[in-house]
Design a protein around this nucleic acid. Structure first.
Lengths: 336, 336
DNA sequence: CAGCCGGGGTAATACGTATAACGTGACTCG
DNA sequence: CGAGTCACGTTATACGTATTACCCCGGCTG
């Protein structure tokens, strides 16, 4: 009681296997009569025929499958990247398979063997550095997400305009009168975060003060980092710029535990604009990153590369969404 | 400049293709000398040989790949289910591919064709009803997640002890003196939610009052639903039982907008224990669902079924985590 | 009537792998 | 010294599909 093959369909319909393949592949502009084509199709559905993808892939030498390498799907941002990539892929008859160590903790298995299928290309986030080494060895079309565009090795780059996002944040905060900043930065080493940090330092002109604290990307990490930072007696910041909404939410919470009101005493900004941003109170002022579009453009770029077309596009624009976690800087404490 | 095949390795090493296959498959307990084995392996790495998975899958008649059907990866719960399933799969040399309409909105494409690879089995959440129809037609080992265990068609079921979770919630709230309840329920029709609703109604004894409002699983939906429910003049509830942390967060927010303090004036409980639960303020009292374990057990069950072993296991236990969103029922308004 | 054409289909083949079946020398044992 | 036995490989084949090259036959043309 095994699955029917195209040959089974052929014998059942009284034709050759080649004819079945031609009909079901819609390759009969005059090679097969309409009558037999209909007969074949009817027989196929009657037997419940499904083509064996492994055989087809072998024959065609292509699986129409891409590997998406991201650090963790539990991070909503990357889940949305996947969603976008999968949507575009599906529109072109492609599939997307994930690097199967999505928690970022797994050993660096061979991503290609683990994918259990031959791959046509790879889309990789720069934040999955541990997997990239394993990838480097092979020569498969590679699209990099959020990585240094000058770095070689990739056939295409898809980047968000992170520096511009940071510009919007700083302009917003400076306009509100803030001068003392705390950068709650991600402890993960990645080009994205480096870019943001660099943008922040250059954008803040003279007459301002900036301290940086690194934290793992969890609310708890943010809380401890914040508590340490705010405990410092001298030069308490009035604005906290976070690399992530999760950090921002943790920062808000830590601030309130310490008796500071947000945004009256302390302004907080995030990055990403996750669902979390509007779920917490106050709702977060944050930089909206169109994650789905990152996935879509990544897949689009890969498809172009696979066709031999070089692909390039401007950075994806991002926009600051002003909500309730930022406000005018508090009046400075009067000089003693 | 194409990828080297096992035959290329064979000629380069001066052996036959079969030998290469034996060596790389670790099937030489005496069939190949250690010397030649080493030679073959060295040659393979030198040429950068990687087996063609499509060919292997065709030959073996199995792809060691499972399809996971979930409604939306952007829901942290399902992202964690995937993580768990992928981990167990990887330990057994399996892969997991997702049904490529993860936003739940896409048309019901053929999930098998879209997977771009032959599949060995399917793990499906009951909340992806639109995809299940397409699956029903085929005969592939099927493991159902959170679905009616008496329903046929599946080789195994993996369920969370939802009714027991609801029991813990009600006992907690009853002990706090609550008698007037609002059930903020998911608008999605699913066995899971039905089970919870049923458990809630039966567990609440006489002398209590229960109203039910259905809402889409978003914070905004929760807010509108809550505002409508609390606006009702008569019999304002003192406890809101939500089917989801997202709903609970929305409920807290709505309550505060209406001038109610949580938990002093209103207690709120959630389900899932997402990262969100500890990111909002107050931190949510919620039922912790071990999502990763659902994925792990789902994959374990599928592996067992594939080996011909019938699989069954008790419901996965869940535990109420008491945090800050629940408290003693407020004293009833004095009779006029 | 020979030749040709074109519609309608078929036989053959290759994709790259895993494995069953089959040598083949050298060595051992009776 | 002939028959086994081993240790070490090899030859051949099948998996199911897509596609190329070919074939057959009726009708039309010169």
């Amino acid at each position: 009681m095994t699955r029917p093959t195209s040959r089974d369909v052929a014998t059942a319909a009284g034709v050759s296997q080649a004819t079945v393949s031609l009909v079901l592949g819609d390759k009969w502009p005059g090679r097969v009569s309409t009558r037999t084509a209909a007969l074949v199709r009817e027989t196929a559905t009657r037997l419940g025929y499904r083509p064996n993808l492994a055989a087809r892939n072998l024959r065609l030498g292509s699986t129409r499958t891409a590997l998406l390498v991201v650090p963790a799907l539990t991070n909503e941002f990357f889940a949305r990247v996947y969603t976008g990539a999968a949507r575009v892929a599906a529109e072109h008859g492609f599939g997307v398979v994930l690097y199967p160590s999505p928690d970022g903790t797994g050993p660096a298995r061979d991503p290609f063997a683990s994918a259990r299928a031959a791959l046509d290309g790879v889309i990789a986030s720069s934040m999955a550095a541990h997997a990239l080494q394993a990838i480097g060895g092979d020569t498969l079309p590679l699209v990099m997400l959020d990585s240094d565009p000058r770095a070689g090795g990739a056939a295409a780059h898809v980047n968000l305009a992170m520096a511009d996002g940071m510009r919007q944040v700083t302009e917003h905060l400076l306009a509100l009168g803030h001068r003392h900043f705390l950068h709650l930065a991600s402890a993960v080493d990645s080009w994205t975060f480096d870019t943001r940090a660099e943008a922040l330092t250059t954008l803040l002109g003279p007459g301002t003060e900036l301290r940086t604290v690194r934290s793992p990307l969890t609310a708890d990490g943010a809380r401890t980092a914040m508590e340490a930072a705010l405990a410092a007696p001298l030069g308490r910041p009035t604005a906290v710029v976070c690399d992530d909404d999760i950090l921002a939410a943790g920062a808000c919470k830590a601030a309130r535990r310490l008796g500071l009101r947000v945004p009256e005493d302390l302004s907080v900004t995030g990055f990403d604009d996750l669902a979390l941003a509007t779920a917490v109170e106050p709702e977060l002022t944050t930089v909206h990153l169109p994650a789905e579009r990152v996935g879509e453009q990544g897949m689009t770029a890969l498809l172009a590369v696979l066709e031999g077309t070089p692909w390039t596009a401007p950075d994806i624009p991002v926009t600051l969404v002003v909500r309730d976690s930022t406000g005018p800087a508090p009046a400075p404490a009067p000089a003693p």
